[in-house]
Design a protein around this nucleic acid. Structure first.
Lengths: 340, 340
DNA sequence: AGCAGAAATGTTAGCGATAACATTTAGCGC
DNA sequence: GCGCTAAATGTTATCGCTAACATTTCTGCT
């Protein structure tokens, strides 16, 4: 096992103290330029790498940010991480990445590990099953700042960067209303998931703003996957002709794809018979038979804003608690009735 | 600033020594069960988090693996990271993620930082511009194991897990040959990139094995993007009818998409007039007008095998240097001439 | 009860670096 | 060349933890 070269050995090789070596290596003032030069050369020659672990112990700073991601398969989060990485790199922070796999228990344990590793701050997107917030509070009480991203925890004094699900849902629903559709249905997410709730709220709000009746029969609680959209749409298609929705807002793109399949199977056309829109701008959205009108969410921007806020907090540049909302963008294609 | 609770304070609260606290917390033998119980309770009550930085300093082990990724936008690498994460989590290692952005300089600096952070091992996929391998050797001489993944560095005694680009290219080319096509063209990657070279080699090898002539005019050096495939295909389509390829092997799926666009613009049909195949199983490959026959690369598996190898090495379970190759899988759709 | 041996606990030193203070050396004016 | 200040360097203690050794407290057995 090769021995590791320490500052002490560099010092010994030059017949000086480790303190001078430390000063030279860290560009501190009050070091003779000739000494500094010699230290640099010797360090290079001996293959010296500073030990950041030791440094972190004494400085109580690791220049490391802990990132907790609930799901990595989903394309949204890698994109967020890319944004996080970009800014943190520029600011000289490294990232420790943890995956909670949507499990509250794993999330808690990941946070504990990160705290034990003395990260300077945490970026967290909560797992879907989390309901106990004491760990967050415990961490914050220790003076470790947390910024939540995408999935926020409110009222515990933490910063938060999220997507404006509700407003975006309103936006896209209003687009359908502008097309003149009166009866609009909604294929929603599971009711216990925040994102689903927000989008449903936004949908309802848009109807109300235009004085359209909100018909509970036209809101089907489903899920985020293709099959959920498929079966929900089948339910809608079974409604009597006078009641069947002329347009549908799906909770996300996969659900919309499923719904489209059901529509085609009923020998109906999109958008001539039923218009449909999605949410999240899946890569497939523009490639399918009738390209899907949807909302593009800027995951990259969410990541950037979240770390930036966290780093500001770590370096005491800000103290106010903010809720930053990254706007979604309406991507108009053909499934809504627009012609492209 | 809240003070951090240390083992010493837990000890003082109980009137015992820190050593006993340490032993109790780490499930060491020779601790009275009652004492252990009290320590656990008190630690919990005081909100004690162990300081892994201090622990790492004395144990010279961080339980952390450094991962260097050249590119995060590309879907391949997030998938590799997912595989890495899964296994490392099971084995109790955390990941520090670094991004070299295909820059040799950034890669070197990332490695230096990771070494300074005392990672137990490194997973590296080299940036495209890297040609100086001394940093790798320096790190390995320090006793820090490296496993390369996807993009390997040979002959420096490091383990490596990669995709069998050459063999897969042979495989898919042979599939075209089985269709009876005689004149087959290749839209290759840039010649200085290894992956491109390997695929081209595999393409050539398949032709040779079947005693088909390798016509240099049918091999167009292009790039990995859609526009590269588009312009390369245009060059091929300009060839005199007797020379124009009846089938094309594209270096990857995006290049194939570009090529397909060019083919359609020439009012030719796929696969009736020109058959084409890709590489990498892009998510769009099965959704397009004529679904693309391609090679699926198991990025997830690459990640899993690479960390596993690394952890074995860290824990001294293996010492032999291996080159692990994860096989690609032929995904047959319609663009090759098969009917689905 | 007395004692060996095991079990439980304590003490000291050190991991590799830096802060804070102490000391030596250098520079400069008269 | 002297004295004074500033620059350069050195010393000691410490960050929070654990290894290694030292000591004390239990056991059980004759």
């Amino acid at each position: 096992m090769p021995k590791r070269v320490t500052a002490k050995e560099v010092a010994k090789a030059l017949g000086i103290s480790t303190m001078t070596v430390s000063r030279a290596l860290n560009n501190r003032p009050n070091v003779d330029p000739k000494t500094r030069q010699k230290v640099l050369e010797t360090a290079q020659k001996l293959g010296y790498f500073p030990n950041y672990i030791a440094k972190s112990l004494v400085l109580r700073k690791t220049n490391t940010i802990g990132v907790v991601v609930p799901e990595i398969t989903h394309s949204f989060f890698p994109e967020v991480v890319r944004g996080i990485e970009e800014i943190s790199y520029q600011s000289g922070y490294d990232l420790i990445l943890s995956h909670s796999a949507e499990s509250g228990i794993r999330e808690k344990s990941a946070i504990e590990t990160l705290v034990s590793k003395q990260v300077d701050g945490l970026l967290i997107s909560t797992a879907q099953t989390v309901s106990d917030y004491t760990i967050y509070q415990q961490v914050m009480r220790r003076g470790i700042p947390i910024v939540f991203y995408d999935r926020c925890v409110k009222n515990i004094g933490a910063n938060c960067v999220s997507i404006d699900d509700e407003e975006s849902a309103t936006l896209i629903t209003e687009h359908l209303i502008q097309h003149g559709y009166q009866r609009i249905g909604h294929i929603s997410g599971p009711s216990q998931v925040l994102i689903g709730q927000a989008r449903k709220q936004g949908f309802i709000k848009a109807l109300q703003k235009s004085n359209l009746t909100v018909d509970a029969d036209l809101i089907i609680e489903a899920g985020f996957h293709e099959k959920d959209g498929y079966s929900a749409m089948q339910t809608l298609l079974q409604l009597p002709p006078g009641k069947m929705p002329r347009a549908v807002v799906a909770v996300n793109d996969p659900a919309a794809f499923g719904a489209m399949k059901a529509i085609y199977e009923h020998n109906l056309r999109i958008p001539e018979d039923v218009a449909i829109v999605g949410f999240s701008d899946d890569i497939r959205a523009e490639l399918i038979r009738t390209p899907l009108t949807t909302i593009r969410q800027n995951a990259y921007e969410v990541g950037r804003r979240a770390v930036q806020k966290l780093i500001d907090q770590i370096e005491n540049k800000t103290s106010s608690v903010e809720e930053i909302i990254v706007k979604g963008e309406l991507v108009i294609r053909n499934s809504c009735g627009c012609t492209g």
